[in-house]
Amino acid sequence: MRRDAIAGLAVAAASLFLFWLTLGLEKSALVPVGPGFYPRIVLGVTIALSLWLVISGLWTKQDKAPKKERLNYALVALQFGIFGLYVGALPFLGFRLATALYTAAANATLDPPRGARGWGRVLLLAVLTAFLSHLVFERYLQVLLPRGSWTGF
C-alpha cells in the first residue's frame, strides 16, 4: 500500500536525522555507555523497521478500494485549530476565560446554533464548564489551574 510506504519513509527520515544528532552526544564520566547508547539502538531498530514497512508497502500492490465516505476534514482541522488557540491562550487569559471561550467556540462550530435558544445553549455550556470546573478543582480538589499572565484571573 502506497500510504504505508510514505509513512515508512517519513519515519525513516526522521529517525535518521535523530540518529545523526545522537552522534554529537558526549560520553559521561559516570555511565559507561553514555546518553547516546540507547537512542542509537532504538533509532537503528526504527530505521530498519520502517524500511521493512516501505518495502512491504510497495510489494503489496493495490490498496483495497476504500469505502467512499464523505469525511468532514474541514471540521476536524477547525477543531484542532480552535483547541490550539485555546492552549496558546491559556497562560495569558487564564483558565476560566480561555475555557469559556474555547467551549463556546467548539460547541458553536460542532453544532451551529440557530436562534436565541441555540446561542443560549452555547453560552450556558461555556460558562458552566469554565466556572464549575474551576470551582471544583481549585476549591475542593486542591488542583491549581493556570492563571492568566495578562489578566491575573
Binding site: 477543531q79 475555557t99 467551549t103 460547541n107 460542532l110 455550556l125 469554565a130
Partner: peptide, 8 residues
C-alpha cells in the same frame, strides 16, 4: 456538547 467538555 460532550466533546468540548471532555477536551477541557
Amino acid at each position: 456538547m460532550l466533546f468540548p467538555v471532555v477536551l477541557v
